[in-house]
């Protein structure tokens, strides 16, 4: 008898990278159902185009790099699913394809592919689309209106609460409507209740830490209460509209805790999320676009290693102090 040498441990946890990615896919599916309910079949079609184009670009890039395609790697599917959800349901298909191209071929593979990208691919793709198709990205259809696949019919457009806020106005929407997503905005980011459920699911599955979204949202809420953009109305209203409008909650669940670009330690993650919320709120106050969180996230991605080093230093100091006591 002779056996191969192998390394300890000999038992492994049953979850794999595929499980992590498929968890996120499962969490994204209800958002597509909600989008289809409010905006029709076009929402599903946008998702399909997003997924298909990212997977195709991903395969091409892997081939170019001379690597082997791993069919169990679902990260491109996740990127492709996240992208259209941050856009309005009336976005042209070409925007989604371009955003997917930028996400995969500019933000992901030049840095070394899965696990090595410095910037969040979906955020990069969105930022590119926001700069190139500003009009299409920031005019939203009224929910429950019929949107044809080819956009030939006349569609009722309206301003999103995020835009109204940036003009120092008070959006006129009911609290319940906002929870259910019955207000104009990105097709997957307005369904607050569903997003909260997705967040709980991902936290329960330990795919994301609770610290990241909670720190992000709490910091944003505190800043919204202290520096309200709406001149009339109370603090609570300001907090509600700031958190519920745009892609604030969507970012805190699907963009910010993305494993590759976020810091590793819990301490670092909390600091990272809090700083991210501060940048996002500053951008909302002084930025040119109605929705600038994504630019804040990209800025933050570059800081992640620094924040992580800071977290490591904190832990080292605590450790040395504890040892000194003992």
């Amino acid at each position: 008898m002779k056996f191969e040498k192998s390394n300890a441990p000999y038992i492994r946890y049953h979850e794999s990278s595929r499980t992590v990615m498929s968890d996120i896919i499962i969490a994204l599916l209800p958002l597509y159902i909600m989008a289809a309910y409010y905006y029709g079949v076009r929402a599903i079609l946008l998702g399909a185009v997003g997924v298909l184009s990212s997977v195709v670009f991903d395969c091409i890039c892997i081939k170019f790099a001379g690597k082997k395609i791993n069919p169990r790697d679902l990260s491109a599917v996740v990127t492709g699913m996240i992208l259209p959800l941050m856009m309005p349901a009336t976005i042209p298909f070409i925007t989604v394809v371009t955003a997917a191209f930028v996400a995969i071929a500019v933000a992901k593979h030049p840095f070394g592919g899965v696990g090595n990208n410095l910037f969040n691919p979906a955020a990069t793709g969105y930022a590119f689309a926001a700069l190139c198709w500003t009009n299409e990205m920031y005019t939203y259809p009224v929910p429950m209106t019929h949107i044809g696949i080819a956009l030939t019919d006349t569609i009722k457009y309206t301003q999103s609460p995020a835009y109204t806020l940036s003009q120092s106005g008070v959006p006129n929407y009911d609290f319940l409507d906002m929870l259910l997503g019955n207000f104009p905005g990105p097709m997957g980011a307005t369904h607050i209740l569903v997003l909260m459920a997705c967040m709980l699911f991902l936290i329960y599955r330990k795919t994301i830490n609770w610290q990241t979204p909670v720190c992000f949202l709490v910091t944003a809420a505190v800043l919204a209460a202290l520096f309200p953009r709406i001149l009339t109305g109370n603090m609570l209203q300001s907090v509600m509209f700031e958190l519920f409008s745009g892609i604030m909650i969507f970012t805190s669940v699907f963009i910010l805790p993305e494993p590759v670009t976020s810091p590793k330690r819990i301490v670092a993650k909390s600091i990272y999320a809090a700083v991210g919320a501060a940048i996002a709120m500053i951008y909302r106050h002084f930025g040119g676009l109605a929705e600038g969180i994504v630019f804040g996230v990209l800025l933050l991605n570059a800081l992640a290693p620094v924040v992580d080093r800071m977290g490591e230093k904190i832990i080292r100091t605590v450790r040395r102090a504890e040892r000194g006591k003992a």
Binding site: S17, V20, K206
Partner: peptide, 11 residues
Amino acid sequence: YTCIGCARCVD
């Protein structure tokens, strides 16, 4: 797979 930086090892 390649490392995706999920930080479970850190946890």
